[in-house]
Simulated assay, not measured.
Amino acid sequence: MSQATDYRMPAEWEPHLATWIAWPHRQSDWPGKFRPIPWVYCEIVRQLTQCERVRIEVVDATQEADARKKLQRAGVDLTRVDFYTIPTNRCWTRDHGPIFVTNSAGQKAITDWHFNAWAKYPDWQLDDAVPATIAAHHQLPAWQPTFQGRRVVLEGGSIEVNGAGVLMTTEECLLSEVQQRNPGMTREDLEATFATYLGIRQVIWLDRGVVGDDTHGHIDDLARFVNPTTIVTVLEDSISDENFEPLHENLERLKAARRIDGGRYEIITLPMPDPVVFDGQRLPASYANFYIANDRVIVPTFNDRKDRLALGQLAELFPDRDVVGIHCGDLVWGLGTLHCMTQQEPLGAGESLGFAAG
Rank of each mutant, 00 (worst) to 15 (best):
S2D: 13
P10D: 09
E14W: 08
L17E: 04
T19K: 00
H25M: 01
K33F: 05
R35S: 05
I37W: 00
W39C: 10
Y41T: 06
Y41D: 07
E43Q: 15
V45W: 05
L48R: 08
Q50W: 12
V58C: 02
V58E: 02
V58Y: 00
V59M: 10
Q63N: 04
D66Y: 10
L71R: 07
L71D: 05
R73M: 13
T79W: 09
I86V: 14
D95V: 01
P98A: 08
K108C: 10
Y121I: 00
Y121R: 06
D128P: 02
T133V: 06
Q139H: 11
P141D: 08
P145S: 08
Q148K: 14
G149C: 08
V152E: 01
L154A: 01
L154F: 01
G163H: 02
G165Y: 04
V166W: 08
M168F: 07
T170L: 03
C173G: 03
S176F: 06
N182V: 07
P183T: 07
G184E: 04
D189R: 02
T193W: 08
Y197A: 00
R201I: 09
Q202P: 10
W205P: 01
L206A: 10
D207F: 03
T215Y: 07
H218S: 04
H218C: 10
I219G: 02
I219V: 15
D221W: 08
R224S: 00
T230M: 05
I231T: 12
V232K: 06
E236Y: 12
S240L: 15
E242W: 09
E242P: 11
E245P: 09
R259S: 09
R259H: 12
I268M: 05
P273M: 13
R282Y: 02
Y291K: 07
N294F: 03
V297R: 03
I298H: 06
P300Q: 10
P300K: 06
D307P: 00
R308N: 15
A315V: 00
E316I: 04
V324C: 11
I326S: 11
D330H: 06
L331W: 06
L338P: 13
P346K: 12
L347E: 01
L347Q: 05
A349H: 15
G350H: 13
E351K: 10
A356F: 15
